[in-house]
């Protein structure tokens, strides 16, 4: 098998340039999908027969919760690749993920609380799903705090990568918490084995929003990754060519 592609992804100047080229290809479709989904979700979709218009919080809550978990998976995978193959670019990816992931974990918790109050009668319960999501936030904050507390960059990379990998245990707990325990949180309505339990005009904006948020994260990650690479490669000669 030809491994040159793999080595190319280990080359900072290559990744820096590629990230710059790819950013608009993520950003524009993301913007269009999110705006379209906003219209579909707030205007076109019919109110839910039980939750009325309140259910529309799903169009910001579910994509945020998805991002929170997906970004952690990307971060941990990158950290693992960095740890095993000693690939600095992979560590740079992991470092670029954490802040965005933490933000969207907070958004998923806040939008969940705002949905919980009118539907369950309370902003917060120590429910398995909610608690696991809160732990996810602490994992992100721990990852960032650990990195910030170690001066030597390669040590910070390795230590935070170990933390990220240990935290992966939390992901299946978040995913299956609503099935393993009697959670107050409703079961998944889209990602299930049989067909989704939603009519099309409710479902389509949700799917568009999920894809839009995912591409949005791709764009933000690429921008942050370039900044991270520039800082790490501060003395490399390719930066001179790149910036002049």
């Amino acid at each position: 098998m030809d491994w040159t592609w793999f080595h190319k992804f280990g080359s900072p100047p290559h990744v820096y340039r590629l990230a710059g080229v790819l950013t608009p290809w993520f950003a524009w479709p993301a913007a269009l999908l999110i705006l379209g989904a906003l219209y579909g979700g707030l205007v076109l979709a019919p109110p839910d027969y039980q939750q009325g218009d309140g259910f529309r919080i799903i169009y910001v809550h579910a994509p945020s919760a998805w991002l929170a978990v997906m970004i952690y998976a990307v971060m941990a995978t990158a950290a693992g690749v960095g740890l095993i193959w000693r690939m600095k670019v992979a560590h740079a990816v992991a470092a670029s993920c954490a802040g965005v992931g933490a933000w969207f974990t907070v958004v998923s918790l806040l939008t969940g609380m705002l949905w919980g109050k009118p539907m369950w009668g309370t902003y917060w319960v120590w429910d398995p799903r909610l608690t696991a999501q809160l732990i996810l936030l602490f994992l992100y904050l721990g990852f960032m705090g650990l990195r910030a507390s170690i001066d030597d960059l390669s040590r910070a990379d390795r230590a935070s990568a170990v933390l990220a990998l240990v935290g992966v245990v939390n992901l299946p707990i978040i995913r299956y918490s609503v099935e393993w325990w009697n959670s107050i949180h409703q079961a998944p309505s889209v990602m299930k084995m049989d067909r989704p339990s939603m009519p099309f005009d409710m479902l389509a904006p949700l799917l568009a929003m999920l894809l839009g948020f995912t591409l949005y994260f791709g764009a933000v990650l690429l921008i942050r990754l370039r900044a991270e690479i520039l800082r790490r490669e501060r003395n490399a000669s390719w930066i001179r060519e790149e910036l002049t």
């Binding site: 109110p47 218009d53 919080i57 949905w115």
Partner: peptide, 10 residues
């Protein structure tokens, strides 16, 4: 539908 107080902040 009465959910403005929760929906718009979200």
């Amino acid at each position: 539908g009465g959910y403005a107080l929760f929906l718009w902040p979200a």
